[in-house]
Write a protein that binds this DNA or RNA. Structure first.
Lengths: 225, 225
DNA sequence: GCACTTGCTCTACGATGTAGACTTTACGCG
DNA sequence: CGCGTAAAGTCTACATCGTAGAGCAAGTGC
């Protein structure tokens, strides 16, 4: 009765994997558990991903595909700002996936990454080059931008606490464990830490960075020849 | 014969762990393997770390202790710049530990982290507050700064290739796997990617960021009242 | 000499990733 | 229809992992 085990597919497997990760964290994503979710023998998964690592890559890719980039937009600053906010929201939607996004590339040379995870890089380069940057400068801008962006996201997720009810309480409780003599400033900042506005903080940072970049490579971006 | 198993200690265990991670990567750090390195039963390790996760935290802490911060320095910008370069070098010395530094805090609220990993935060806050920033602004500056710094390090490590001989070859080889039609700009940038000057890139980024921050919170930092 | 703590070891268990051989299902073609 | 081949899914088995729990050994204070 009910749906009789619809045929498996890569998409199906990956989205079940993502759901599992979102719901229960990275460690919950074991082959056996995933097999169980899909009501299939764990071994069947190996048809759709070479091994667990590849499965994780697949999840990364799938998540990054949620990010829309329009490389044709002539207003590169606006576009970069929008992407930043989108990526931030995406991170908040899938916090458990972020370690993957950040960690997997460290052990995989650029050329061997899942295409979906390299595409944003290509597209942002396109955006910048089309906007008038020399390719080399585009790369510099990309690095500064993406570096800052990922840094911010990591920062924000570190301070992210799920239940806004217990938010301040929990935070204080946590901070309370720090020896008062060694961490006076941190402890004093508890209330400020408690209401962290990640969106505003990101936006300001991006503003600073973008105008700084523009000024620094002061070859003004001529819109079109 | 030879040295008869010197008494174990937390330091000993942790530094053996760090060495193992540096030499063979995070996955090589298993309780059994570490026990073997120390010529001790794996179970003995549990005297010095509650479990594997705590061991990893210990390694993080040990690495971060290599970072010297002088919160009393009145020249906050110079100090932040120096710290940035120091942390970068530290990352290059222990690339395999970086995933830990970045990933563990995501699952540990501020107050429950190993003290050694929170101390830099406290010290930088001290530096900034002593330099005249209001505590809240100090926190903002810290976030932007550390966010950018970690972002840069992640970026650089991603492009880091161990063997400088094969450097360009490998990179090209890697990039060659990308479909030419979908990734034209990236492929065109191969030579530029091949000689990446992380130090310069970091320094420029820091310059942009610091001057941007100073301007943005334009409440000029009065040295002393 | 004895009691006790501390460092360390032994054994054992459940869970994990995955290789390899197997069975079942789907499907194209006569 | 039916038959043959390929694809999808399963079963069994193994090495390796973290770690609980009981026990052993050596040092320390009385």
């Amino acid at each position: 009765m009910a749906s009789q085990k619809p045929r498996l597919s890569r998409e199906l497997v990956l989205s079940a994997a993502l759901e599992l990760v979102d719901d229960e964290g990275l460690d919950a994503l074991t082959m056996r558990r995933l097999g169980q979710v899909l009501e299939r023998d764990p071994m069947s998964l190996y048809r759709y991903a070479e091994n667990r690592a590849a499965l994780l890559d697949g999840v990364s890719e799938m998540v990054l595909n949620e990010l829309a980039i329009f490389p044709a937009d002539p207003d590169w600053k606006a576009q970069l700002r929008r992407i930043a906010h989108d990526l931030r929201l995406l991170a908040l939607r899938h916090p458990n996936v972020i370690p993957l996004l950040v960690t997997r590339p460290l052990s995989t040379p650029l050329g061997m990454r899942p295409l979906g995870t390299v595409r944003p890089l290509e597209q942002i380069l396109a955006l910048l080059i089309d906007a008038g940057f020399a390719p080399t400068d585009a790369l510099h801008v990309y690095r500064a931008y993406y570096g800052f962006l990922y840094g911010h996201i990591l920062n924000e997720l570190q301070e992210y606490i799920v239940d806004p009810e217990e938010n301040e309480a929990l935070l204080r409780l946590g901070l309370h464990r720090l020896p008062a003599k060694d961490f006076p400033r941190l402890r004093a900042l508890a209330p400020v830490l408690a209401d962290y506005d990640g969106e505003a903080e990101l936006d300001q940072g991006i503003t600073i960075l973008l105008s700084g970049l523009e000024a620094h490579l002061d070859r003004a971006v001529a819109a079109t020849p």
